[in-house]
């Protein structure tokens, strides 16, 4: 059974990596793969069902949906990527600092606890309310919201590492605190960080599409998966394809990222490896 589970999860992981790879490549190569340009409108072909000419159909302005999902991938992946990047850049150093300097720890973690206790989509909506709707503000909002996630995970790992003997030896031979943090603590938390990056990237994609769906994120005519779903919403019975394909893109991306995150976590956690397989 255990053997089977291992094989099975490996196959899943491979499949997930292929799916993510395909989506990323599709988004990057959109200008070359896409049959039309993102804003090209076919006035005579509005809300046309999938056909040879438009393999995923067209939207209410006669734009080719396959093309727009590809270009939408560029925007959705970029917004999610930059958001997670923001939270990574601020969250990881905060977490390491908190683990290394005890006085910072208490104050910082209290503040982050308060931020964290608030649901992230709501917090992002409120931040967007303050900054005003728009793509860049959506990135900032999601980025700020996710800082505690990185800081907390990093801190909980780093606190253990800091107490290890080799850190004490490093300190005693005069390695600077910065050197210890970068060279000794860094590699030890890398695995956990990969899991966090993968899982948070997944939720960031949902957060971006939720904001854009509400009209608070990426603004039309820019194609983003969430904004496309919002536009397709009004025609869902006339032209279900306008709602199905952008949503499918979100779903597959998030699913694949979750599978990858889960798989890496299981590999890393020896306790789970035996118990849950």
């Amino acid at each position: 059974m255990r053997q089977l589970g291992f094989l099975r999860s490996n196959a899943m992981l491979t499949l997930a990596l292929i799916v993510i790879g395909a989506i990323v490549v599709g988004a990057i190569l959109a200008p070359w793969i896409a049959p039309y340009s993102a804003d090209q409108m076919f006035a005579r072909a509005r809300l046309v069902a999938p056909s040879a000419e438009h393999i995923w159909g067209t939207d209410h302005l006669g734009r080719d949906l396959f093309t727009r999902v590809l270009y939408g991938g560029q925007i959705s992946l970029m917004v999610a990527g930059i958001s997670v990047g923001i939270s990574f850049v601020f969250g990881v150093p905060l977490g390491v600092l908190a683990a290394y300097y005890k006085p910072i720890d208490n104050l910082l973690m209290r503040i982050l606890d308060v931020v964290f206790s608030f649901p992230s989509v709501l917090l992002a909506i409120f931040i967007v309310a303050v900054l005003g709707p728009g793509m860049i503000n959506a990135m900032i909002a999601i980025g700020i919201t996710y800082i505690p996630r990185f800081a907390r995970v990093v801190r909980s790992q780093a606190v253990v590492v800091v107490e290890m003997d080799y850190i004490r030896s490093a300190r005693s031979i005069g390695v600077s605190p910065l050197g210890i943090m970068v060279r000794h603590i860094g590699p030890n938390i890398a695995g956990v960080l990969i899991v966090q990056l993968s899982l948070n990237f997944a939720t960031a994609i949902i957060a971006e599409s939720s904001l854009s769906f509400l009209g608070l994120g990426v603004q039309p005519p820019w194609p983003s998966w969430g904004a496309m779903l919002d536009q397709g919403r009004l025609y869902v019975e006339l032209a279900p394809w306008a709602s199905i394909f952008p949503g499918l893109a979100i779903f597959l991306t998030v699913l694949a990222l979750n599978i990858i995150g889960d798989a890496v976590r299981d590999r890393l956690d020896p306790r789970l490896r035996g118990a849950l397989r």
Partner: peptide
């Protein structure tokens, strides 16, 4: 469970509306 976690619920909502119709 994995699918349920990954599916954006507003998309699920749209699909449900469509299916119900």
């Amino acid at each position: 469970g994995l699918v349920g976690l990954s599916i954006p619920n507003f998309w699920l909502g749209s699909l449900m509306l469509l299916a119900a119709g």
